[in-house]
């Protein structure tokens, strides 16, 4: 088992607030590692530090052995670390297809090509269409992203991340704001994806988390209080005490 991601003594301060407090975590290649915790536990802050959107105050983030904590977001993306956003982040004037095709284009190298029409270049639209199909949005490919329903925008967000062909996929609440049908579809999709990609998943839907995760880490006040298989986490007294409570732990059981 190779550690795809090792987080070592990671700290993130916002003034006097410790958003990430001496966090140690490792993610094994090929696993789906869920990060759960109460609101304000620093889950999104962690994703931001992993993706390079926010700089860590101190500590190391090793990606297949290389310390990437000081690299910019584009540099990390080129190494295969791709995030999706909790709050949808799209190019609203572009069609759904163009949004995804841009991810394929970005992966294909630099974009200093000035004359040829890229909007119907099948090298980009082909894989983009596949990604849209995977998330179940192919029939809405030509609709402007800004005109999609909220749940559809969430699906598009996921399609963009997939099209970037990540080695490590950072998903920040991919199911937030989705209807039940869409959520089921995403759970099915993630089950399909989990052998192909290494995934860090932040999610509030405990049913989904316990159904999907190989391992779960529990964050409280920026600190990791437990890591283990869903079964271990469900039984962990510290976790029950801090976060899950008796009812939630029962809800997650089969």
């Amino acid at each position: 088992m190779v550690a795809a991601l090792e987080i070592v003594h990671l700290h993130k301060m916002f003034g006097a607030l410790k958003a990430t407090d001496d966090l140690n975590l490792d993610v094994v290649e090929g696993e789906l590692h869920a990060v759960i915790g109460p609101n304000g536990a620093g889950k999104t802050t962690l994703i931001s530090q992993l993706s390079g959107q926010a700089a860590a105050t101190s500590g190391e983030i090793r990606f297949f052995g290389e310390n990437i904590a000081r690299l910019s977001m584009p540099q990390r993306v080129r190494r295969g670390i791709v995030r999706s956003f909790q709050i949808t982040s799209l190019c609203r004037e572009f069609s759904a297809l163009t949004n995804v095709a841009l991810a394929v284009q970005a992966r294909a190298g630099h974009s200093f090509r000035f004359l040829r029409n890229a909007q119907n270049d099948s090298r980009f639209t082909g894989p983009a269409m596949n990604a849209l199909d995977q998330v179940g949005l192919a029939h809405r490919a030509d609709v402007e992203a800004g005109h999609l329903a909220h749940g559809e925008q969430r699906q598009l967000e996921l399609a963009i991340a997939l099209a970037a062909e990540p080695k490590l996929l950072l998903l920040d609440e991919p199911m937030a704001g989705m209807g039940a049908d869409e959520s089921h579809r995403v759970v099915d999709l993630l089950r399909e994806l989990k052998r192909r990609y290494t995934i860090v998943l932040v999610e509030h839907d405990m049913d989904a988390v316990f159904a999907l995760a190989d391992r779960i880490s529990v964050l409280v006040y920026g600190h990791c209080i437990a890591t283990g298989t869903p079964e271990e986490i469900r039984r962990d007294p510290a976790v029950r005490n801090a976060y899950l409570g008796e009812d939630a732990a029962d809800a997650g059981s089969p």
């Binding site: 993706s51 959107q53 910019s72 977001m73 584009p74 993306v77 080129r78 791709v82 995030r83 956003f85 982040s89 799209l90 190019c91 609203r92 004037e93 572009f94 163009t98 095709a101 841009l102 991810a103 284009q105 970005a106 992966r107 974009s111 200093f112 090509r113 000035f114 004359l115 040829r116 029409n117 890229a118 909007q119 270049d121 963009i160 970037a164």
Partner: peptide, 28 residues
């Protein structure tokens, strides 16, 4: 007109619409 539809044009327009998104795609 050609520039706007080219790879370069899509990136430029994308940066105007959502700079963070472009960075998240690996585009500086």
């Amino acid at each position: 007109f050609c520039l706007a539809r080219s790879r370069f044009g899509l990136v430029i327009s994308g940066i105007r619409q959502n700079e963070t998104r472009m960075r998240a795609l690996g585009i500086e």
